[in-house]
Simulated assay, not measured.
Amino acid sequence: MTSLLEQFLLCKYKMKQPIMKQDMLKIIHPRYHDRFAEILKRASEHIEAVFAVDLKKVDSTIHSYGLVSKLNMLNNGRVWDGRGLPKTGLLMTVLGVIFVKGGCAAEEDI
C-alpha cells in the first residue's frame, strides 16, 4: 500500500507539482482511508530514509504537502558551477538500494 503512495509522491516531487491529500486518497483503496495518516507516515519515513527528502505540510486548510530535499549540496550537486548534470540523483539511488538491501548490495542489484 505504501509503495504506491511513495511512487506517487516521488513523481509529484520530480514534476515539481503540489501534493494534495485528495489526490493521495485516490491512490489508497477506500477500505484504508481511515488509516491514511499511518500510511502517509510510513511512506514519508521511507522516502526520507532512501532519498533524503522530507514531507512537509504546505497548507493545512487545503491539505497540501511538499517534498523538501534535506541535502544542502553546493551547485545543486553539479561538479562545476552551472555546468553538467546533478550527480545526487544517481548517488541517492545507489545508496537507497544499499539501504533497502540491509546495508549490502550486489552489483547486479544496483
Rank of each mutant, 00 (worst) to 15 (best):
I19W: 05
M73D: 14
D54R: 10
P30E: 07
G103I: 03
N75F: 14
E45V: 06
L91K: 10
G84K: 03
D81L: 11
V97M: 12
V94M: 08
Y32A: 15
G89Q: 03
E107F: 05
V100Q: 13
K41N: 13
A105L: 08
C11L: 09
H33L: 08
E6Y: 00
S60M: 03
K26N: 09
I62K: 11
H29E: 09
S64Q: 10
K21I: 04
D34C: 10
F51M: 04
Y32Q: 11
G103S: 09
K12L: 08
D23W: 03
T61R: 10
K14W: 10
R78M: 14
H29L: 08
S69K: 07
L40Y: 03
L10A: 06
R78D: 13
L40D: 07
S3T: 07
Y32T: 00
K56H: 09
P86F: 07
S44C: 11
K57W: 00
D34L: 09
V68C: 06
K14T: 11
W80C: 15
I39W: 04
L5A: 06
I28P: 03
T61M: 08
L85D: 10
H46I: 13
C104S: 15
K26A: 14
I98F: 11
E6Q: 14
D109C: 10
E107A: 13
P18G: 00
D109S: 14
R35A: 15
L91Q: 04
N72G: 14
K87H: 08
L9N: 02
K12N: 04
H63E: 15
C104W: 12
L67C: 06
I62V: 02
L5C: 06
V100M: 13
A52F: 11
P18A: 02
V100E: 15
A43K: 00
E38I: 06
R31P: 02
F36H: 00
A105F: 03
I19M: 12
M24C: 11
I47D: 00
P86Y: 03
S60I: 01
S64T: 14
F51Y: 14
D54P: 00
K70R: 12
F99V: 09
A106I: 06
K57M: 13
E38Y: 06
H46W: 08
L9D: 03
E45P: 00
E48Q: 11
K87M: 14
